[in-house]
Design a binder for these strands. Structure first.
Lengths: 209, 209, 209, 209
DNA sequence: AATGAATGAGCGTTCATTCAT
DNA sequence: GATGAATGAACGCTCATTCAT
């Protein structure tokens, strides 16, 4: 009904160029506030204040409050997840690829703690508004892991008697739980240092021989 | 804020017997509504209607809306998690104990899907109101896993070169991610059947030999 | 979606009896405010204040702001219009019936000036929300006039070469315009005294012989 | 409030020629939008879009939103009503003058349905902003009718025992109600064809003999 | 104890108006 | 003159909480 931005206004604005880039300022502010207070406890006023704009300005860039979350996934999260593939491609064998994937994953989420908090919260609440976005981002990741596993099986470095549908989710879940633990600890230790021990557990298991 | 029942009223009531089930009816109703709509989208009115009581009645048993969530963890979740120890104790060796723990965990969460949904959502949102409860429940679980791991190391069935602090979280995280995947799938398949493949991954890892 | 009052809550409340009757207090207050400020310029707060209730209370009795207008037509206006038939039935011949109708019409609208103002405004703005209500009330009136005209034609007191569809609207329109003129004048003169001259114009026309 | 153009800018502009049509484009657009959505449901943005100008441009030609309505009456309505006198002057006797007046009235309002809709709505809502304009336009019309009536009385074609103050309003009201009925019907039939039957009712009345 | 009508603070959203470009 | 991004006051509506019955 409304003629509001089905195509995000940021394009129109970035052509106008300059310093403004209010779209990103608002998005970053929102994620920061969401992380601090929880999505549902955050108000438009708080986000506007944090972004240094008027309340109404937010509605020039986002359809409504929910849309901020949708854009967060469409823009920010998808961008981060696409970085992972780069690092995976740099490695030659699948074990190394797995290392690179997990390391980069932990790096990016450590670097952007607010994003990590919001991502964890939203993907575990059964939010109807961002369900498609979550599925898409998840699929990107799971497909990437599946590729690595299959390649490892060809190389002979990974067991062939694995149900890949389970394994890929197992790996994603374990990494995300490492992130979740780190967040619950207040982000005090170095998350990236968890990378190698985590991979070691994936590969060798906890069993003796 | 108010000086109302910091000691939950249910004790006073359960000694009186009989009507004390209202406390539980409300709690079950709340979990059911929370699971369906999300904690923040649920209203006191909806819970009251589902419990078959008046809105005001809820405030005779709970300090406020947040308190319902607190009681959910204090009463319901803690009770379920204490079941796990029983099953662990039934087993003789640590590998079997791990099997029993994970199977029972999946069983209980499959049996009580609403609880599972709420548990997943709340433990991943950075909620300040239930943080102590989550820590306590987590600790119960992690301690149990740690005991099992340590016993397994004594028995020789589990590698000694493990950082237990990581491993126990790794296992909890992997199980929870299995639950989360099951929930996202709509609870269509049998969650308990994931138990053995999951344990296999823990023990043997994905690496070849 | 909401379980709100499709059946007006006033029934539930009037059984509770007593002085409250908030439904009518709010309705009267709303009409009064609407008349003073115009429907669209009136706020829920103003109505609540005039009714002596809290803003939120209004939503216990009305679905939303529009619903107040709908209820105004369903309850108040329809009730007034049904009075007209009584007076019409008291008269023996159709000319007298027409006199009674017009007199009572002017009487009621003079007695309830706020209602008159709101009625005039709403029936002439092409309001989608009360269109069915307006049609219904109009039909009641037009049917009544048509009956009178037809009876007069049988009696021989009214011309037979009339297009009743036009005449009945002509009469309603002329009466309403008398009301409108009275309102524009500030309600200073006696509206009811217009009744006889108006009927005289209907009957005899302005033509000489 | 502001010291801006109390003397409408259009004069300044029309002497400059050329672009002055923006004033009229905005005015026409406004009337069209007002008719479609109702005055209060219409936004400056909608009007600007329909006029093909920027929102801010409207404020170069109109003090504020209310002023558009004021200008509508001052410019558009007054212009249309002044046409009526022309047609009245063309006729020789007062009955014919009355015919011409009513026919032209219905013609113009049928031709310009948007204007008709807005005119009906605004003159019946008790709007304080256009009250003087409405009075002035009404007076033009009523004076014209009064002249005709008086002339008819001199000619002997119209009854002398009439209260002219009532009759002139009666006639205006009846014509307006014909327009209103036509609008409520969706403008489906030919409004101008109502002219003769309407006049017949004025002149001869509904009474027999 | 139980009720549910009443409250009013608080929030999302709209939109007339301004003003730097 | 013309633009349209930005503003923020204002409003409709929700809902946790209270309290008279």
């Amino acid at each position: 009904m409304t003629s509001k931005n089905d195509v995000p206004r940021r394009f129109a604005i970035s052509t106008r160029g300059k310093t403004s880039d209010k779209y990103h300022r608002i998005l970053e502010a929102a994620v920061s506030v969401f992380a601090r207070q929880g999505v549902h406890q955050s108000t438009i006023s708080q986000i506007a204040k944090e972004a240094g704009v008027a309340d109404g300005t937010i509605y020039l860039y986002f359809k409504n409050k929910d849309d901020i979350l949708v854009q967060f996934f469409n823009y920010k999260t998808k961008q981060v997840f696409s970085l992972f593939r780069e690092d995976v491609d740099k490695a030659d064998n699948s074990i190394e690829k797995l290392h690179n994937l997990v390391r980069r994953h932990l790096e990016e989420f450590q670097r952007n703690k607010s994003m990590a908090v919001v991502y964890q919260a939203v993907t575990h609440e059964n939010s109807v508004v961002v369900k498609p976005q979550i599925r898409e981002v998840s699929k990107m990741y799971l497909d990437l892991v599946a590729e690595i596993i299959e390649k490892g099986q060809e190389e002979g470095s990974i067991r062939r008697d694995l149900y890949i549908g389970l394994v890929k989710r197992f790996i994603l879940g374990a990494v995300e739980s490492a992130i979740n633990n780190w967040l619950h600890s207040g982000g005090k230790y170095d998350l990236v240092s968890m990378s190698d021990p985590l991979i070691d557990l994936f590969i060798r298991g906890i069993g003796n021989k």
